[in-house]
Design a binder for these strands. Structure first.
Length: 689
DNA sequence: GCGGACTCAATTAT
DNA sequence: CATAATTGAGTCCG
């Protein structure tokens, strides 16, 4: 889509920021815009900063039509960076300005060149417009770099490519797609590496490798550097790898802590800070929820005592103090679930309030910058601080009804909280952490156990691994790598220890969960802890019921989970084998294979899963898991995280077409038995059964 | 079991 | 186009 509206918009915006030659001031053209993705919030700037905002070099204006772009875009306040004006499917602007190379990362080489799409801008509420490379069309442009894939283009049908404008400017859907893809590839690379570990110890970095692959294939977005908000990235979003922030354009450098933009073409260098990561390498003061004392870069890890220099990131922060532009702040901290790793929280926009130098611990002079959080932003880091307090018992949890709803039945307490109304709890039920069968699941009795004492990834002698297509389904960190038709876990029949890594769904809760009262959807479930994509949440506990009997009884049961009627078909979660040059198309299916349908009722007995609400844009999926009790195989329904989930975010899954609704009267029944959906997601289907 | 030293990384600005 | 600068995430060792 070169020359499309999105691009010319971006180019124009870019130029506004970058070219600050005073004599070409178009001040009246440029309105105030808190949402404008590229510029500091002019409303909150002093007069000196206004001058900076207003410059709009006429040289990049392709035509009089383009004059409207900044104003329209800014006034529209489009959250996702879409164009709220113009002809959505309109012809590409032939006069789009030439890209300014120094402000855009170099163009990646798509593995498969994308096909032209009719309308790639403009449909604000629409689905992510991604190209499926069928390479059937004659209009497909091929570059020479494609050749390594030419022989196997058949197996690459599912690879989704982003077009130029999608790589330059993101949206919620594009960002989500990139993040899902990144983690799916990373998990697969980790899985391959862990399987090899038995033979050779390769210290590879799956996170870097996954990032590198996606970069080279153009699966990234928000490549145009900008100050302020990044379309599709929300305050509070969490990341487990630096690469991930790099791919979605939140923070460009994969290592350095300060991202900045240099105003090239200007005689004097005027770098501007865009985002910073505070992660503990330097002696930052990051305890206050709204103030961050950030240390400049340089001088650390040097053999001799070195003074930091006022250049690059340090200079950029200094200039940003003068310009008073918004700076994205990402706070990194130790991941308590995985102490050797880190987790990064996007904490929104800050401004540099003052700067000074002082003597660092190692003796050299260092720069310090005091950043203050801009008011009235959604809370992010402060939620983490609150959770920390609740966990340590200081500070009372507002609205706490019960410290442990499960009364000790789980290995972690489950809080019951209501801070919205006077409801003192859900209706009575018995807490039970697993599924109760009254008769065998299947008529056949199979010995399914393996013979290992320690099931080791890559060991194909382990028949539990063989049943999972030869892959150890979980990583050492406990996350699931891929959805599969059926997941086979080790069981009491296996001689391996109960802490075997292939028993993830049997080992209880991993996160401190909370059942809480929502404002309009009854009771819901959320977690105090951050959750990684692929992490196990809980299983669907309850009584296995006979579906036919259930229908006859006509007694209302809103707590039914039914494998036969669920539908997660729209979810594509697994890695794309073609990205890793794997010929594995058939085995990578995400269609479930349920040998015998299973219906579970959590009305009388159940666990936390019975409180999970429906969403058309869920963060949890369910996966059938098979293992044995008393020498007989039983089917369980296990829930895993689709994406990284920040603390205190409601956990939801897609009820699909199941006749199950949440237990509360938060849905209004329509004539045909459908329930009105209140999930509020952009792609909400409106109703579910 | 933890912290420090050391090592290997990918990307981007220069 | 090569190179320097950046520091996350491992490993190793005391």
């Amino acid at each position: 889509m070169e020359g499309g509206l999105g691009q010319s918009y971006s180019e124009a915006n870019k130029s506004r920021v970058l070219d600050v030659k005073p004599l070409r001031c178009w001040a009246p053209v440029f309105p105030k815009s808190p949402q404008s993705p590229l510029l500091p919030n002019s409303a909150s700037l002093g007069s000196s900063q206004l001058a900076f905002n207003a410059f709009y070099p006429s040289t990049v204006l392709p035509g009089s039509d383009e004059l409207n772009h900044p104003a329209a875009a800014a006034n529209g306040g489009s959250q996702n960076g879409f164009f709220p004006f113009g002809n959505p499917g309109g012809p590409p602007s032939a006069a789009a300005p030439a890209p300014i190379r120094s402000y855009k990362s170099s163009e990646p080489t798509p593995a498969v060149v994308t096909q032209d799409h009719g309308a790639s801008n403009g449909d604000v509420g629409g689905s992510l417009q991604i190209d499926r490379s069928d390479n059937a069309s004659g209009s497909v442009k091929r570059k020479r770099t494609v050749l390594s894939f030419d022989g196997k283009s058949e197996s690459r049908k599912n690879l989704v490519c982003l077009d130029t404008s999608q790589r330059e400017e993101g949206s919620a859907e594009i960002v989500e797609y990139v993040r899902m893809m990144f983690d799916a590839v990373r998990r697969r690379l980790s899985q391959l590496e862990e399987a090899k570990e038995a033979l050779i110890s390769l210290k590879k970095r799956p996170d870097l490798k996954a990032g590198s692959i996606l970069m080279s294939k153009g699966i990234r977005t928000n490549m145009i550097k900008r100050t302020g908000t990044v379309p599709g990235v929300e305050i509070g979003d969490i990341f487990f790898f630096r690469m991930e922030m790099c791919l979605v354009g939140l923070h460009g450098p994969c290592m350095a802590g300060i991202d900045y933009l240099t105003c090239k073409g200007n005689s004097e260098d005027e770098p501007l800070a865009l985002s910073i990561v505070s992660s503990g390498v330097y002696d930052d003061e990051a305890e206050d929820k709204d103030v961050l004392i950030y240390t400049g870069q340089g001088g650390v890890r040097k053999k001799q005592v070195v003074d930091q220099k006022l250049e690059k990131g340090n200079l950029a922060l200094e200039r940003s103090l003068q310009r008073a532009n918004e700076i994205r702040v990402i706070r990194g901290m130790k991941d308590l679930m995985n102490p050797s790793a880190k987790v990064y929280v996007y904490d929104g926009l800050y401004k540099v309030q003052e700067s000074w130098t002082e003597k660092g611990r190692t003796g050299g002079n260092i720069f310090k910058y005091k950043l203050v959080r801009i008011a009235h932003q959604p809370s992010a880091f402060s939620i983490w601080k609150s959770v920390e307090k609740w966990k340590h018992g200081f500070g009372s949890r507002v609205g706490l009804i019960l410290p442990d709803l499960a009364s000790g039945a789980e290995n972690l307490p489950v809080s019951l909280v209501n801070d919205v109304d006077n409801d003192r709890g859900p209706s009575y039920f018995t807490y039970f952490p697993s599924v109760k069968y009254s008769k065998p699941y299947t008529s056949t009795t199979l010995r399914l156990g393996c013979n290992c004492h320690t099931c080791t990834p890559g060991d194909l002698n382990c028949c539990c691994i063989r049943k999972n297509d030869g892959d150890f389904p979980y990583l050492a960190s406990g996350v699931l790598v891929s959805r599969r038709p059926m997941l086979y876990e080790c069981s009491p029949l296996c001689p391996c220890f109960p802490n075997c890594k292939n028993r993830v769904s049997q080992t209880g809760l991993k996160f401190h969960l909370e059942v809480f009262k929502t404002t309009d959807r009854g009771w819901g479930l959320r977690s105090w802890d951050p959750i990684r994509a692929g992490a196990f949440i809980c299983e669907y506990a309850g009584e296995v019921v006979d579906k036919l009997n259930l229908k006859r009884k006509s007694e209302r049961d809103d707590y039914i989970f039914d494998t036969g009627q669920h539908n997660q078909n729209s979810l594509k979660w697994n890695y794309e084998p073609a990205l890793l040059d794997e010929e594995k198309s058939g085995e990578c299916t995400e269609d479930y294979e349920i040998p015998v349908p299973l219906t579970i009722s959590a009305k009388k007995i159940g666990n936390v899963a019975r409180f999970m609400n429906h969403s058309c844009n869920p963060n949890i999926f369910w996966q059938p898991v098979m293992y044995e009790h008393n020498s007989e195989p039983f089917l369980h329904i296990a829930f895993f995280a689709i994406k990284n989930i920040p603390p205190m975010t409601e956990l939801t899954f897609d009820y699909g077409i199941t006749p199950m609704v949440s237990h509360q009267a938060h849905v209004s029944d329509t004539a045909d038995g459908k329930k009105k959906c209140l999930c509020k997601s952009a792609n909400c289907r409106g109703y579910f059964r």
